[in-house]
Design a protein around this nucleic acid. Sequence first.
DNA 1: AGTGCGATTGACT
DNA 2: GTCAATCGCACTA
Length: 215
Amino acid sequence: MGLRGLLTPSAFMPRPNDPLRSLRRSALPVDTTALARFLIGKILVRDHSDGRTTGRIVETEAYVVGDAAAHTFRGETPRNRSMFLQRGHAYVYFIYGCWYALNVSGEIPGVGGGVLLRALEPLQGIDLLRRRRGTDRTLDLARGPGRLAMAMAVDRSLDGVDLCRPGALWLATDGKRPPPIEQSVRIGISREIDRKLRFFARDNAFVSGPVHLRR
DNA sequence: AGTGCGATTGACT
DNA sequence: GTCAATCGCACTA
């Protein structure tokens, strides 16, 4: 490596400690499906009194306007109102009596739509993620929406948080190019089952779902 | 006031 | 591969 490489960041060397930059709202596509694709490769940051945990988003699903599988389909209610906030806000819901799941709102104010975050590749705070999940299996720490929320200590208290402002929970980029992205049908729904609104990083081991939907 | 069910997971055969 | 756990919420009445 030459002098230039010592003095300036190199695009060719991995930099594990690349600074995180908060995602500006203006950078987010004004469309839930485009946002679901855009978020692959971005970073979710959880700042907690226990410490910071971060993970790279490797799997998302879009729940769009007019989508019978979306919680917003029947209009705004106390439960889902966060998905009607301006794009970039957290919608957290509780399901099956035991799990939370985290979404990012994706439309203009008053219009309901959101992106379910389904899996993260753990980056920082892996010991803390392990403690929260009660397992040492790095692969399983945040593979699946319920595990992701548990690993990142996400519950309804974070519902409505603005993910474009650094705080308890926010979205960031480390400047890396997004990975190759694949698309498929969504997992675990019974309506609108043919719409290919799931996005994931190709051949990434931290992606959830059955094997035939992993590549 | 009562009912049915879900954008899941982990344990088990 | 199957299946129970578990409860907030939306819907019906």
